[in-house]
Computed example of a mutant assay.
Amino acid sequence: MLPASKKAESSEQCPLTIDSVAKHFGGITAVDGVSLSAGAGEVVGVIGPNGSGKSTLFSLAAGGQKPDSGSIRLSGVDVTGWPTWKIARAGISRTFQIPSLFINMTVRDNMLAAAVEGDWQGAQDRMTRTVEMLEISHVVDNLASELSGGQQKLVEFGRVCMRNPKVILLDEVTAGVHPNIRKIILGAIQQLRETGITFLVIEHDMEMVKEICDRLIVMDQGRIVAEGDFQTIANDINVQQAYLGRA
Rank of each mutant, 00 (worst) to 15 (best):
D214C: 01
Q152P: 05
T128R: 15
S137D: 08
G45D: 08
D32L: 10
A40C: 15
A247F: 11
Q65C: 09
S100L: 14
R182K: 15
G63A: 09
C213D: 04
V177A: 02
Q121Y: 11
A115W: 03
R159C: 07
M162F: 02
I92W: 10
L154A: 07
R182N: 09
N180V: 14
E146I: 15
Q152W: 12
E194P: 01
I212A: 00
T17P: 04
I181W: 06
V239E: 03
S37I: 09
F25W: 05
G45H: 05
V139A: 04
D109F: 08
Q241D: 15
M105L: 11
H178Y: 09
V155E: 03
E156M: 13
L169A: 07
S71R: 11
D125H: 13
A114N: 03
N235Y: 13
F58R: 00
H24R: 06
K183I: 11
I189E: 00
S5M: 13
A4G: 01
D220I: 12
K86G: 04
F199Y: 10
T232R: 11
T17G: 09
L216F: 04
V34N: 00
A144I: 10
A123K: 05
H204K: 01
G53P: 03
T195S: 12
R94G: 01
I28H: 14
E227M: 14
V131S: 01
E156Y: 05
L170I: 04
I202L: 04
R73V: 11
E156A: 10
E156P: 06
A62L: 05
L200F: 08
A30M: 07
I212D: 00
N142Y: 12
E12T: 12
R73C: 11
N104D: 13
Q65G: 03
I233Q: 11
L101I: 06
Q241R: 14
L170E: 01
R246Y: 14
S93N: 01
G63E: 04
E9P: 08
Q151M: 10
H204I: 15
S59W: 07
V140C: 08
G91S: 12
S11Q: 15
P67T: 02
I28C: 10
R163P: 02
Q190L: 08
I168R: 07
R89C: 04
G39S: 06
G91E: 13
I185K: 00
V131R: 02
T130S: 06
G187Q: 13
A90D: 09
L143P: 13
Q65A: 09
Q65W: 09
V31F: 15
P83L: 07
Q221N: 13
T174E: 01
E132M: 15
A115C: 03
S137P: 10
